[in-house]
Computed example of a mutant assay.
Amino acid sequence: MNVYNSTTKDIDEIFKLYGIASDFQRSKKTVVVWPDFDRSMVSDEINENRQFKLLIDNKIACVWAITFSDEQIWRKRNDDSAIYIHRIATNPDFRGHNFVGSIVDWAKSYAKIQQKRYVRLDTIGENKGLIRHYTNAGFDFLGMFDLQNVDTLPPHYKEGPACLFEIDLNKSDK
């Protein structure tokens, strides 16, 4: 397993995995479903080295993106030094490999290199299974929060409260 920056050659596979993830969410009928994401947003993430892929046997097993600011979701907490993980999507051929755990390990190292204190992520709606999954991976669940301004966020952010999660690297090292 190796983590690399995604390239423009990966964009079709990234969107294929997003579609598979959306279909999976739809099949659960209890979670918010990802919309069709803006291709230019993902292209910008790739060009800014913020879109990543995990490879197994030279196949994309999982993708995710990061950002260093997420003010609309994290509000005042956005002033903290953090990386924010978004849109983890797994190739169904590789399900069951606990990629969230692998991403957490990678993100902790990456955050330290970037001199960030926190690793954060969010999900929309009260998905108890996903809350349990993220807390089992080492995140602290901070609670559910209504977002105030979602106009420039992807449309699924209008569908429920945001569940916020973080790992404080100053605490996790002790």
Rank of each mutant, 00 (worst) to 15 (best):
I11W: 12
I11M: 07
I11L: 15
I11N: 08
D12Y: 07
E13W: 07
E13K: 12
E13L: 14
E13A: 13
E13P: 00
E13R: 03
I14W: 06
I14S: 02
I14Q: 07
I14L: 10
F15I: 10
K16W: 04
K16L: 14
K16T: 08
K16C: 13
L17K: 09
L17C: 09
L17D: 07
L17R: 04
Y18S: 03
Y18G: 01
Y18L: 08
Y18K: 04
G19T: 12
G19S: 14
G19M: 14
G19F: 01
G19I: 07
G19Q: 13
I20P: 00
I20R: 00
I20H: 07
A21P: 03
A21G: 00
S22M: 01
D23L: 07
D23S: 13
F24A: 04
F24R: 06
F24E: 11
F24C: 02
F24N: 04
F24I: 04
F24M: 06
Q25K: 03
Q25P: 02
R26A: 12
R26G: 03
R26F: 02
R26Q: 11
R26V: 04
S27K: 02
S27H: 00
K28A: 08
K28L: 15
K28W: 04
K28D: 09
K28R: 06
K29Q: 13
K29R: 11
K29M: 05
T30D: 14
T30F: 07
V31K: 01
V31L: 04
V31M: 13
V31Q: 05
V32C: 10
V32M: 11
V32L: 05
V32S: 06
V32I: 11
V33E: 10
V33A: 01
V33N: 02
V33C: 06
W34F: 09
W34Q: 14
W34R: 10
W34D: 11
P35L: 01
D36S: 12
D36W: 09
F37V: 07
D38I: 13
D38H: 09
D38F: 08
D38E: 14
D38P: 08
R39E: 15
R39Y: 15
R39K: 15
R39A: 14
S40T: 14
S40R: 10
S40V: 15
S40A: 12
S40C: 13
M41I: 12
M41D: 15
M41G: 05
M41F: 15
M41L: 13
M41A: 12
M41N: 12
M41Q: 06
V42N: 11
V42L: 09
V42Q: 14
V42F: 14
S43K: 10
S43L: 15
E45K: 02
E45S: 12
E45A: 05
I46N: 02
I46L: 06
I46P: 07
I46R: 05
